[in-house]
Design a protein around this nucleic acid. Structure first.
Length: 420
RNA sequence: GGCGCAUUCGUCUAGGGGCCUAGGACGCCGCCCUCUCACGGCGGUAACACGGGUUCGAAUCCCGUAUGCGCCUCCA
């Protein structure tokens, strides 16, 4: 039987990166096994619901490439079903009324356990199991009731979720047993933590998919990185594109201990993916990203600047800080050009005569100038770079000059020379 | 407090009794490359939480302790 799994977020806000990891493992498992991946919104607590979040969650999943099967289901739409099942349990003596609510009768003795796919045998003493509320006094189901009932109705074969649900599992198992439903396999994923060992939150850095997207991370890099949080292919491999992930992912290689989210490693991985992109694709994504961020600089210039930056930045978000000088005049840091008035004037003259105005010729001319002035290349090019790009960190100088064009390059050199 | 889960370099991890004087990756440090930055190359740093067992032999199995985290809501 093909497995069927689900991702069941509650619509209380944006999609948290820890939630994405849960969704990802479900998705990878389903796609690897040729099963189905369902999306179910657990919205039984209307008071905590955040407008727009349902759409945002879907948009985030789509952006990451985590496609789900069928329509999105909403837990609240199945209210009548939940009430009917609760009545059944009431009539069968498995539940009782309590101040308007309906509670499930947990056994008082013995144990309730299961073979967790990632942790092995887990069991709880039944005396520790509270009689959970099935239906609130207003008739709405609670999570510990709606969730297993929906899993049953949806034919969920594997419940893959965060480890914070471990203590809920015995309760849900008892409910399912009382209903005579087959038990799904359970796999409890380790938590995703911040650097201080606590649950990853806003103060550790970006936590929502939207934020990572806005900062210029690639979905495939995020997916790759997240897959490594709790799962590994082998002892060696780190860079594993989504298709490879699908090909190799198995639940038995998921670890059980909490994983700290490492922003530096994600950034490195993002750089790997960025550099691996074919140049046209890189330019395409860069334009898309910049437009999404509201940047309206000339597209041809963006595309021309793209290859000069591809090997040098790790996130698309760095582009404007790194190559923004292509789109507007910049004020060089006085300290970088100070005392170089003559050099800059000479460079201006030299470049005025370069023909054609292309990187190789520009390089030859400027190296010749450095030699004449008896300056080490790095000493000679530093002020020129600052005059033209505004910074001592930039794309290649000669390529930058070519792209900027002779007229603009000379103008900037002239201005800097006067102020130096 | 009770119950549960977890514990290998700073971080992510490999490891399932001898292949481990513990491997890979990120980070960090050094060198090389070099017009800056980056990339790349080379080298280095750094870990089996602790204590008992079991065994000829333990990172690997068992017990205990410690620490961290989770849950104990008519939240999910």
């Amino acid at each position: 039987m093909a497995p069927r799994v689900r991702f069941a977020p509650s619509p209380t806000g944006f999609l948290h990166i820890g939630g994405v990891r849960t969704a990802l493992f479900n998705w990878l498992f389903a796609r690897h096994e040729g099963g189905e991946f369902l999306l179910r919104v657990e919205n039984t607590d209307r008071s905590r619901e955040v407008e727009e979040s349902v759409e945002q969650i879907q948009e985030s999943l789509r952006w990451l490439g985590l496609d789900w099967d069928g329509e999105v289901a909403f837990q609240l739409d199945r209210l009548e079903r939940h009430q009917e099942v609760a009545r059944r349990l009431l009539e069968a003596g498995h539940a009782y009324e309590d101040e308007g609510a309906i509670r499930f009768r947990m056994p008082d003795e013995g144990k309730t356990g299961w073979e967790d796919v990632v942790r092995g045998h887990v069991e709880f003493p039944n005396e520790k199991l509270e009689d959970v509320v099935l239906l609130r006094s207003d008739g709405r189901p609670t999570y510990n009731f709606a969730s297993p009932v929906d899993d049953m109705d949806d034919g969920i074969t594997h419940v893959v979720r965060g480890e914070d649900h471990i203590a809920n599992t015995p309760k849900q198992i008892r409910v399912l047993e009382a209903l005579g439903a087959p038990l799904p396999a359970y796999a409890h994923l380790p938590n995703v933590l911040g650097a201080d060992g606590r649950k990853l939150s806003k103060r550790h850095g970006a936590v929502s998919v939207e934020e990572f997207r806005a900062r210029g991370y690639l979905p495939e890099a995020i997916v790759n990185y997240l897959a490594l949080l709790g799962w590994s292919l082998d002892a060696e491999t780190t860079v594993i594109p989504p298709e490879e992930l699908v090909r190799h992912f198995t639940l038995d290689r998921v670890g059980a201990s909490g994983a700290t989210f490492d922003y530096q490693k994600l950034e490195w991985l993002n750089g790997v993916y960025l550099r691996d992109l074919p140049p046209e694709e890189y330019a395409h994504r860069l334009v898309g990203y910049l437009r999404e961020q509201g940047f309206d600089g000339d597209e041809a210039t963006i595309r021309a600047a793209a290859p000069l930056c591809q090997e040098k930045i790790a996130t698309l978000g760095e582009f404007l800080a790194f190559a923004g000088f292509f789109f507007e005049r910049v004020e060089p840091d006085p300290a970088l050009v100070d005392g170089s008035a003559d050099l800059l004037a000479e460079a201006e003259q030299t470049l005025a005569a370069v023909e054609p105005f292309t990187a190789p010729e520009i390089e030859q001319a400027l190296r010749g100038l450095a030699e004449r002035l008896e300056l080490k290349p790095r000493r000679a090019f530093g002020p020129i770079r600052a005059a033209v790009t505004g910074s001592n960190v930039s794309p290649g100088l000669f390529e930058s000059l070519e792209l900027l064009g002779r007229e603009e390059s000379l103008a900037r050199l002239s201005a800097a020379s006067r102020s130096a």
